[in-house]
Simulated assay, not measured.
Amino acid sequence: MIESPHGRMAQRLALAIPALLLGGAYISEYVFGLFPCEMCWWQRWPHFAALGFAALSIVAPPKRVLVTLSALAMVVSGLIGGFHAGVEYGWWEGITDCAVTAAVAGVSAVDAIMTAPIVRCDKSPWDLFGISLAGWNFLISCGAGCANMALLFKGRA
């Protein structure tokens, strides 16, 4: 059961971490103009799934399974982020010719395509302490996913 204090904490983290990371991604995009590349989007999809599993765990059984799926989805996002960070740091090549044109609102489709900035997957638009956003996603998502799993197993004892 998830009624243990550790299980409830895992459930709360499973809801909070993907919500905060997705919120940060959208704030960086819409407030600070850091448009996502293709691999950035790849990292968001598992967080959407993690958020959905965590939200579902609040209202539907089996709660432990849903929180576990949320934790696994966070780890998947983190692993994609780790791969993306490696591409940004030049450790290896990306698996696609990854460049996306950022959407420009309020203009015709042709003008939007012609004036939109190109967002490359191999260039980090921002970093903190030398760690790119993809690198931070790797650290936070993998850490939180593993912490959630540890809390769930600790809650069983």
Score class of each variant (00 low, 15 high):
2 I>A: 02
2 I>T: 07
2 I>L: 04
2 I>Q: 02
4 S>C: 03
5 P>W: 09
7 G>M: 08
9 M>I: 15
11 Q>N: 11
13 L>F: 12
18 P>Q: 10
20 L>Q: 14
22 L>A: 08
23 G>Y: 12
23 G>E: 09
23 G>W: 11
27 I>P: 07
27 I>R: 06
28 S>D: 14
29 E>Q: 14
29 E>S: 01
30 Y>S: 04
30 Y>N: 10
32 F>W: 05
37 C>L: 11
38 E>C: 01
40 C>T: 08
42 W>H: 02
42 W>M: 15
44 R>V: 03
45 W>T: 09
46 P>E: 08
50 A>W: 06
51 L>F: 15
52 G>T: 15
52 G>K: 00
54 A>C: 06
54 A>Y: 12
56 L>S: 10
56 L>C: 02
62 P>H: 03
64 R>L: 04
64 R>W: 14
64 R>C: 00
65 V>I: 02
65 V>E: 14
66 L>Y: 04
67 V>D: 04
69 L>P: 06
69 L>S: 02
70 S>E: 02
73 A>K: 05
74 M>A: 15
75 V>L: 05
87 V>N: 04
89 Y>K: 12
89 Y>T: 11
89 Y>D: 15
91 W>P: 00
92 W>L: 00
96 T>G: 00
97 D>Q: 14
97 D>C: 10
98 C>P: 03
100 V>Q: 05
100 V>I: 11
102 A>L: 00
103 A>V: 10
105 A>T: 02
108 S>K: 14
110 V>C: 00
112 A>I: 05
114 M>Q: 04
116 A>R: 05
118 I>D: 09
118 I>Q: 02
119 V>H: 03
127 D>N: 13
127 D>W: 08
131 I>W: 09
134 A>N: 12
134 A>I: 03
135 G>H: 09
135 G>P: 06
139 L>F: 15
142 C>P: 12
142 C>Q: 00
143 G>Q: 11
144 A>S: 07
144 A>N: 03
145 G>K: 14
146 C>Y: 09
147 A>D: 08
151 L>T: 09
152 L>R: 01
153 F>V: 13
153 F>C: 06
154 K>I: 12
155 G>Q: 09
156 R>A: 15
